[in-house]
Design a binder for these strands. Structure first.
Length: 495
RNA sequence: GGCCCCUUCGUCUAGUCUGGCCUAGGACACCAGGUUUUCAUCCUGGCGACAGGGGUUCAAAUCCCCUAGGGGUCACCA
């Protein structure tokens, strides 16, 4: 019998947003949208030591920045609240009590020391490390008496005999033998519940219909399925997403480089590119189309189409995709996205950005083919802000300039001087300069290479006459004059 | 090591369920050429894979079995 689609992500607020979490969020969200269901954000702050409200904020802010929106969550409430696990502790205690009374859970008085020794022995004998279920044999009344007397205990789930089947939407049916499932701890000695316990209690209480998460959780699933049964609650369908892998083909981790969403935000990846790339990790639109909108993704997304094998994170492809999105932006949008990076680099302050908005937009539009990330702009245009007599020359630019020599440049400067008084008319100047070079029977490069070096100090870049227009006539003339001297002076020095 | 999952170009993947249209398609990267005042963008072309072995079948990347390899997980973490 079908039930309303309700999915969730349950991140623990213990750090930054991992790309894996971002993808899980994206897939859950897309699935909910596609099926007309609800997407829930639940903060999994079971680990009180490591959970912080800053991290929770970061999760909320980061996912919002990406454009992923949840229907219920700690920041916006909802009919199944509260949405922070720590605030649901009473219901967890209640569930634990019920399970204990029903005999589905039992008190374990084993000390951490004994457990450690047990584990060591099992490992030494190459046996499966699992609790030996010693306390499961205890008489409930006796156990209750010991607990009343103040003896510390943990609560373990009593795994029943038999087997557990998980009908995974991505992987098909997966069967586990219950003897292989440990009598895992539901409530710790200090009274705090564990993740595997609360996650099921909350999923049940919030009527979660589908659990879509990373493959590392697949082995937890039988424990959870058994708990749903013990709770007399209908279990959700499961879908385990393939892992995102690092270059070593192991689970993507900090070791592999930048794995947090914030890293990519700081580097200036367009949000559309991030979403698009994440969608491609374990899913494909039609096998042909690589660049597609979030809208198309949502329309076409089906859990059944998710691939099973792990996906190695391809930083090159991600960067390429970023460039595709960046280049598709309007000049105004692109300028707006690049502005903070230009400001951070100390090129322009906010006031200048406002006053010279049109100018900045033109510059950004002129550089767009050469950058893939917003953060790459400042380096490309820094020369525009250099002092005219101190433009940094790249080695290759200088080499090109030197190959052609400054003679023609000096001649050009004299020709140019009277033509720049009334501002720079790029198209007209381009035409006139071409004619001027043709008159002399020279190749374009003989003038353009030294000129490019003089103006920008770079071997490549936008159209020279656009650069002149951005720079303004006075600056151009000064830079060319300085370059003529510089080219001549060094030649002297070489002798 | 136990349990579980996975296996198509270097990488992301289409094709696998419903065997034939697959001399296996697309993309990134790489290489070559073209366009351009340069760089880049862009365009064209090239390189490059069904892990191995059996079986079923007229026919297998697609179905079955075995082997190998990789990964995940084995906490009073989440």
């Amino acid at each position: 019998m079908p039930r309303p689609v309700r999915v969730r992500i349950a991140p623990s607020p213990t750090g930054t947003i991992h790309l894996g979490l971002a993808r899980t969020a994206l897939f859950n969200w897309a699935f909910a949208r596609r099926s007309g269901g609800r997407f829930v954000l639940r903060i999994e702050d079971t680990d009180r030591e490591r959970s912080t409200s800053e991290s929770e904020q970061e999760i909320i802010e980061g996912l919002s920045w990406l454009g992923i929106e949840w229907d219920e969550g700690p920041d916006r409430g909802g009919p199944f609240g509260p949405y922070r696990q720590s605030e649901r502790i009473e219901s967890h205690r209640e569930a634990a009590r019920t399970l204990l009374e029903a005999g589905r859970a039992y008190r374990c008085f084993c000390t951490p020391k004994r457990l450690a020794e047990l584990r060591e022995g099992q490992q030494a004998r190459k046996e499966t490390a699992a609790y030996d279920r010693r306390c499961r044999a205890l008489d409930p009344a006796e156990a209750a008496a010991r607990a009343d007397a103040g003896e510390p205990f943990a609560l373990r789930f009593a795994v029943p005999p038999g087997e557990t089947r998980v009908d995974d939407l991505v992987r098909g049916e997966v069967v586990f033998q219950n003897v292989d499932i440990d009598d895992w701890i539901m409530v710790r000695g200090d009274g705090n519940p564990t993740y595997n316990f609360v996650v099921v209690c909350d999923d049940a209480a919030m009527e979660i219909s589908h659990v879509v998460r990373g493959e590392e959780h697949l082995v937890n699933t039988p424990k959870q399925v058994q708990l749903f049964a013990a709770l007399d609650s209908r279990p959700p369908r499961f879908a385990h997403l393939p892992l995102m892998l690092g270059g070593d083909r192991k689970k993507l981790s900090k070791r592999a480089g930048d794995v947090s969403l914030e890293d990519y935000r700081a580097k200036g990846y367009p949000t559309g590119a991030i979403l698009n790339f994440l969608a491609l990790q374990g899913w494909a639109l039609d096998g042909e189309t690589e660049v597609f909108s979030t809208r198309r993704f949502v329309e076409a997304f089906r859990l059944e189409d998710v691939s099973k094998g792990g996906a190695v994170f391809d930083a090159d492809k991600f960067r390429w995709l970023a460039g595709e999105y960046l280049r598709a932006e309007s000049p105004a949008d692109l300028a707006g996205h690049c502005a903070p990076f230009a400001a951070a680099a100390g090129l322009l302050d906010e006031r200048q950005l406002t006053e010279r908005a049109e100018w900045f937009e033109a510059v950004v539009a002129g550089e767009r083919e050469r950058i893939s990330l917003y953060s790459e702009l400042p380096d490309r245009i820094a020369y525009l802000f250099a002092a005219d007599d101190a433009v940094a020359w790249e080695a290759k630019a200088e080499k090109n300039a030197r190959k052609q020599g400054g003679a023609l440049l000096a001649e050009y400067l004299e020709w140019l001087r009277p033509r720049l008084t009334g501002g720079v008319d790029a198209p007209a100047l381009r035409e006139a300069t071409r004619a001027w070079i043709a008159e002399r029977g020279a190749a374009f490069g003989v003038l353009f290479q030294p000129l490019r070096c003089a103006l920008a100090g770079k071997a490549g870049g936008p159209d020279l006459f656009d650069i002149m227009a951005w720079l303004g006539g006075e600056a151009c003339l000064r830079r060319i004059a300085v370059a003529i001297e510089r080219l001549a002076a060094v030649r002297e020095g070489e002798r």
